[in-house]
Structures are given as structure tokens and as C-alpha cells.
Design a protein around this nucleic acid. Structure first.
Lengths: 146, 146
DNA sequence: CAGTTGTTTTGAGCCATTCAAAACAACTGC
DNA sequence: GCAGTTGTTTTGAATGGCTCAAAACAACTG
């Protein structure tokens, strides 16, 4: 399922975003790409494999930079640490398990999402609609039933 | 704008939820009711007016209890502390200002919210859909334009 | 290859929130 | 009403996720 990202591909993305190409950045980009939704700790765990000794702080810095540059999307479900994913550009949504906090992607049924244009916006100039579904993941359903 | 809650009304709600009626609980309930979206600190500020000396910790305890009992709804927009509101039961959504973090209620245009039934749910048993809009509030639009 | 500027690292600090134990008060039954 | 029981509040401390700041360092420029 993972669409691994090659070094040079990652490098191109960084340059295109006007960011310097560094080992930590390449490592983070590779760690997140195609691996679902990872929090800083999970990314760090992966980065350390490729770049032993990398401090967690650096992972925070890089994640912040990559997110700021639009190379990574960030979600912050209530009750979870911030998570990062490489799937950007499309405006997909997420399901979060209320029991184990697992996260999965969800594609909206309705292309243009009619209900995502609120009736009364209280004067707000809206530019994004974020949808989060809550439920039980398959594993937790089994455990709850069993 | 605020629908003030009377002491006895609040008391009835607490009893109905099987909770003991205490001064801090009444104070928190009154502080939140009809006052939009308040975080623990804001609630505390209000509670202290009615009940001087009340520690913030108690406000956390009470908010947790009231939320657990379904008397208060809790939202946690990314980048903000948890906020509580008294408007429950209807499944309304929220707009958050990306600049000042102000929050406002939003009623979904589509009653049954078709796009809130995801196509592929990855095996999740979904029970809630949460929508958060992001944009600039009226004040921040003015400041950005001026 | 040296300079400049942006990055990484080191280290400390913060805030919202939670945990735990002791002091206390609301409800129950008498 | 009053005492007991149980749930609450309070006190105090601790946690986790993250940010801030300065110093060490490395990527790009010419």
C-alpha cells in the first residue's frame, strides 16, 4: 500500500518548495510518504532507523517546515497528537477510532460536498472544510463484540 | 443572546443525569449556558465571579463530568484548548478563525448531510460526523484588508 | 572555496491537562 | 433531622506534546 518515495523524488519536492535539501528532511519525507498517519514520535522512530541519533526536536522542526511548505498535511484529531500524512492536494477526510485512535482516510461521497458550504457563516470567509468521522475500527468492533 | 439558565433548571438537569447537585456544578453550568464556546480558563473566570476561590482544577473536574453526562458538548479545534458549549442534541458544526481562533456555530445546509455518510469507511462503524470550517472571522477580515 | 543564510542540535521551558490522595459535602435511610 | 456512605472538591504534583532560543553546523551562492 505504501508508495515509497525515492531520494531524488523527495529532493525535487524539497527544491520545488524552496527548501534546502538535508538528510533529516529526506528521511522525514520518506518516513511519512505512503505510511498513513504518523505522529511526531512515530516519524521519529522511523527516521532514527535511517539516521541514528536524530533528535525528536529535529523531527518537529522538519515536520513543521514540510507542513508549512505544503508537502505534508497535518491533522489533529481531538485526543490525539498531531499526525502527518503525505496525501495532499485532494481534500479527503478521516475516520478516527474512538477506542484506539486509529485513523483511516475517507473519500467524500459527494464530489463537491454540498453540505460543506454552510448556510450562515456568521461573517466568516471560509476557505476550508474539514470532516472527521468517529466510530469503531474493525479491530475494536471485534474486541467489543467478543 | 445568552439564554441564561436558572438555578433550578440547572439543578434538574444535574439530577436527571444522575449527578449530585453542587455549587461548582451549578456555577459551571450557568457559566457555559448561552455563552458560546468557552475553554476551561474562560469558564473558570466566570465561575470565580459567582464562587470566589474556586480552583481551576475543580472546573476541569466539573467540565469533565458534565461532558461525560452529556450536558455539555466539547470541541477541540486544532491549535485551541478544548472548548465547551451548552448547545447539545442538534448536530451543528463550527467555524474557526484561522487568525484569532474565534469559534462560531454553523448549521449544515443539508439536513441529513449526504456527504456525511462516507463511501468507504475502511471497516469502521461510524457513529458521528464532525465538520469544522476554517476561515477568517469578520474582524480579522477587516484587519487583513485595512 | 569562502561567505551567507537557513538548519539542526542542544537544552530549557511552557501550557493544558491529568493523576492521586486527602478533606469535604450531598444524598440515603433511619 | 442525623449519621453513614459515596461521590466531589480541593490540594498538590506530575505529565506529554510541543515551542522557544541560542549555539553549532551544513547547504547553497558566487
Amino acid at each position: 500500500m505504501a508508495t515509497a518515495m525515492h531520494r531524488d523524488e523527495a529532493e525535487a519536492h524539497l527544491r520545488a518548495a524552496g527548501l534546502k535539501v538535508t538528510a533529516p528532511r529526506l528521511a522525514v519525507l520518506e518516513a511519512v510518504t505512503g505510511n498513513g498517519h504518523l505522529d511526531a514520535d512515530a516519524v521519529h522512530a522511523r527516521v532514527v532507523e535511517a539516521l541514528p541519533g536524530t533528535p525528536l526536536q529535529s523531527v518537529y522542526n522538519v515536520l513543521g517546515a514540510l507542513h508549512g511548505a505544503g508537502l505534508l498535511r497535518r491533522i489533529e484529531p481531538a485526543g490525539s497528537a498531531a499526525m502527518y500524512e503525505s496525501r495532499i492536494g485532494d481534500n479527503h477526510h478521516h475516520v478516527v477510532c474512538t477506542r484506539c485512535h486509529a485513523v483511516a482516510d475517507v473519500d467524500c461521497v459527494v464530489g463537491e460536498a454540498p453540505c460543506l458550504v454552510p448556510a450562515a457563516a456568521s461573517g466568516f470567509a471560509i476557505h476550508t472544510a474539514e470532516v472527521t468521522f468517529w466510530g469503531l475500527c474493525a479491530d475494536c468492533q471485534r474486541q467489543a463484540a467478543g
